[in-house]
């Protein structure tokens, strides 16, 4: 299995898209520091998680996944793999592992960038361990949150362009959900809001915002929102479950697609 994962990474060699993708992780934190003079680490990290993560990494993971899941078919290499033989399930698992590592790695680079920029601009560092946990955790959760969309892409098995469109539609859809109270302010339970991955992640993340520099509006919002926070075990539990369900479905679909 490890060999399969290593090979998946070898296959990405010279793929400019993925090298370029890592550069995007610097842009938003950089803009943020440049535009806002009173930046603090907590806010900077939130930007890394929320904007870098949900606006950039989400579509990137889907596009990466589309690439990984289409490449064997596109390059007609599936037959070579099947003749080894490599099982399609394990191949799919290796591809999931690559996407997961990409997501977590991307967030880690974002974390590093935020610290670097803080040091450079003289913002005091503090609570680094919590921030690391939140940031990497977001990466892992994002991986699961992208699964339904990746499933859709693999299931449609359409061109690369369609996949990009689906990825952006999913990102925008989630962006709308997270500012929509009817999905954010619902108690956990058997309801739609509980199973929408992105709102749930935000309901987990928001509780860690520090209120030190926050204004009155922010505080008031925080209090109104606090009953709907989601605990760490709950958020990981829900997304783990959803991730597994969609990965199993995806393996089924991938297995059926012919050589």
């Amino acid at each position: 299995m490890l060999r399969l994962i290593i090979c998946e990474f070898w296959k990405l060699k010279r793929r400019r898209l993925f090298q370029a993708a890592f550069l995007t992780t610097f842009i938003i934190p950089l803009l943020y520091t440049l535009i806002l003079s009173d930046a603090n680490l907590d806010n900077m990290m939130s930007v890394v998680r929320e904007e870098n993560g949900f606006l950039i990494l989400m579509p990137l993971s889907v596009v990466l996944a589309a690439n990984l899941f289409f490449e064997e078919h596109d390059h007609d290499t599936l037959k070579n793999l099947m003749c080894i033989p490599v099982s399609k399930n394990r191949l799919a698992l290796a591809k999931f592992a690559v996407i997961f590592l990409f997501d977590v790695g991307y967030m880690f680079v974002g974390y590093g960038t935020a610290i670097l920029l803080s040091v450079l601009t003289g913002v005091p560092l503090g609570g680094l361990v919590l921030q690391l946990f939140l940031t990497l955790g977001t990466g892992a959760l994002l991986f699961a949150a992208a699964m339904p969309c990746i499933f859709l892409v693999v299931w449609c098995n359409k061109s690369y362009i369609i996949s990009v469109i689906i990825a952006f539609a999913y990102t925008v859809f989630n962006y709308i959900l997270r500012i929509n109270d009817s999905f954010m302010m619902v108690p956990l339970g058997l309801n739609v809001a509980t199973f929408l991955p992105v709102p749930v992640i935000f309901r987990w993340l928001y509780q860690f915002h520090s209120l030190e520099d926050a204004g009155e509006i922010m505080r008031e919002f925080y209090h109104r929102f606090s009953p709907y926070f989601v605990s760490t075990p709950a958020v990981f539990g829900i997304l783990f479950g959803e991730g597994v369900v969609f990965m199993v479905l995806m393996m089924k679909v991938y297995r059926k697609q012919s050589v």
Binding site: R3, C7, W10, R15, H75, L78, K79, N80, C83, I84
Partner: peptide
Amino acid sequence: LSRIGSLIESPGFYPNLTGTENLRIFATLR
């Protein structure tokens, strides 16, 4: 299958890799 070598229809390899790199992937997996 591990005792068989095969070539089916057109050659299928990763275009972004050299010939040696391509073979290395399949050799590793085998």
